[in-house]
């Protein structure tokens, strides 16, 4: 057996049977740190040890509890690992190993197919992959890829206000993204409310609406309510309604500007902003009074 020819590691005695080493596992081969004695008080040297009482080679069938010696005499040395188990427990360990190995492989495969570009396999098994991944293992790592965002998208809002004397007036446009930008400037730890809230709410809105700003599906309705509530909250903080006034309707628009190419580039890009203006939205009663956030 060529394993022994190397003569370097007599601990591998069990290899020939394709089973884990039946000897008491010495921590050394298993420890990633090479720490000589993770077991702490392990007495003696592994090489000198007698075989453990329950080595399958010695005692393949008997249940350990049936062995009176095991109840009266302490084991010759601390035992652990598969090696210290009798055959039927080893089968249990092997089953666990197989189960975990399969679960790990399947999970990694599913995750790979989920993050990879749509391909033959992932198209064929789309439903299986989605069932496995959603809801808790969803992920997206296209970080600044394939291209980084090259536009500043500002979300702006204006409101129709009912004043205390019953008249109505329309406010100017509030540039909420510019407010976020100012809050982020010089801020070593920007809040998600400044960095993600509006930006992602707008992404959510765009991805759930068609080009005529009509909602697509239930998520479209949710995104509209969400965006509207952010607008109301922010207008409220800016005291847009003024003393005694209430918000009646809000209108949102986005202003998209290309990031100019670097100075040293000879590329020419239009930096004229492009607007996308949504219809006026009436506010439900509870939102006209504010109290969001």
């Amino acid at each position: 057996m060529d394993a022994y020819d190397k003569g370097s590691d007599a601990r591998q005695g069990g290899a020939g049977r394709g089973l884990p080493d039946p000897r008491p596992a010495t921590p050394a081969p298993a420890s990633p740190t090479g720490d000589p004695a993770p077991g702490g008080s392990a007495p003696g040297h592994p090489a000198d040890r007698p075989p453990p009482p329950y080595s399958p080679r010695e005692n393949p069938d008997s249940a350990p509890s049936a062995d009176p010696a095991s109840l009266t005499a302490p084991p010759a040395e601390p035992r652990s690992g598969v090696a210290a188990l009798s055959l039927r427990y080893q089968i249990g360990a092997a089953a666990a190993l197989a189960l975990v190995a399969v679960a790990v492989c399947v999970h990694l495969g599913m995750t790979f197919l989920h993050v990879a570009p749509s391909n033959t396999v992932s198209k064929q098994h789309r439903e299986t992959i989605e069932n496995w991944i959603y809801p808790e293992f969803e992920q997206n790592w296209k970080l600044f890829a394939p291209n980084p965002l090259q536009q500043n998208i500002a979300v702006q809002v204006r409101a129709e206000v009912l004043t205390a004397d019953g008249a109505s007036r329309t406010t100017g446009w509030y540039d909420l993204s510019a407010q976020d930008g100012r809050a982020i400037d010089g801020n070593p730890a920007p809040s998600h409310t400044q960095q993600n809230e509006l930006r992602r709410a707008w992404d959510f809105f765009v991805s759930t609406h068609d080009n005529d700003n009509r909602p697509v599906g239930h998520r479209g309705a949710l995104s509209e309510a969400y965006l509207r509530r952010i607008m109301v909250m922010r207008l409220d903080r800016a005291d847009a309604a003024g003393p005694g006034g209430t918000l009646a309707r809000v209108q949102v628009r986005s202003r998209t500007t290309n990031v100019p190419p670097p100075d040293w580039s000879d590329e020419k890009i239009s930096t004229t902003p492009v607007y996308r203006t949504l219809p006026w939205w009436s506010l439900p009663d509870d939102e006209t009074r504010g109290g969001i956030g």
Binding site: W141, N147, P148, I184, D185
Partner: peptide, 28 residues
């Protein structure tokens, strides 16, 4: 993150890093 970037024209022409630095939301 890497393999998708390989396909991006801005990562190919060597200017990609310039852009995030100019975004209002990522330039403290």
């Amino acid at each position: 993150a890497g393999w998708y970037k390989v396909q991006g024209s801005r990562w190919q022409d060597g200017t990609a890093v310039h852009y995030p630095l100019q975004l209002e939301y990522f330039s403290p």
